[in-house]
Amino acid sequence: MFFHDFLEEAAQKNALLTINPYTKLILGLGSIVLVLFSPNFIVPLILVITFSVITVLLAKINLKFYLKLLCVPGSFAVLSVLAIILISGGKEELWSYDLLSIFPLSITIESLQKGLLVFFRVIGGMCALFFISLTTPMTDLFGVMKKFKIPELFIDLSMIIYRFIFIFMGKAHQVHHAQLMRLGYSKPKEAIHSFSMLFGSIFITSWDAGEHFINAMDCRCYNGKFAKMVQYNPVEKKSLSLVLIYLIGIIILIIMTTNYNL
């Protein structure tokens, strides 16, 4: 039930952990922006392939886990793209069907093109996003946030939230197990009752944890400051130039494929 630290755990153990986070962010964010500029599905498709290769082969993320992750946005994308293909109109009709004679469904070349573009844009963007989250642990991003002058309050809060997520997930896991062991979810009514109890106990735990947190900070002379780590491994010229070459290549591809039609 609780897959809490999978993403973060993978990120902490990935093979690209030592690469400077800025390099990884330039690659990921740059590609997301370029995906939005792409006129048809070819560039996003290439992004999907290259990012999957980078994530699985270079960052050594488990393939099965990666595919499982992609299923989440994938299922959303498939459903919405189906709707786009069937509903939006066009000139060259390939297939049509009159549903209950008031709701015409048709597939046209144009709608197919639009559907493919949206689908690969979504997946391409998600691949780039997964690349960032699977190779750059949250703890590295806090330092980046500080460098970009994001308000301290916001960073401190997100650090506390980040720390608490794991405490709560651990607690929820324990309570859930304790309930399972005493057959807490064996009947539907029982399950609803147990589930509400689980959340009740997490609420109390969070209250308690907050209290402990303040105590722990006071014990160490809390004065409104949180230490942040801003030192990273230096930017490697080789990896940075590879990233830039890749991005430039994508830009050239976009320009070249502007006039391509299905």
């Binding site: 650090m159 980040y162 720390r163 405490i167 947190f213 722990a216 900070m217 230490a227 780590m229």
Partner: peptide
């Protein structure tokens, strides 16, 4: 777990 407050 009570005392450790930061993410690293």
């Amino acid at each position: 777990d009570v005392q450790i407050i930061a993410p690293t």
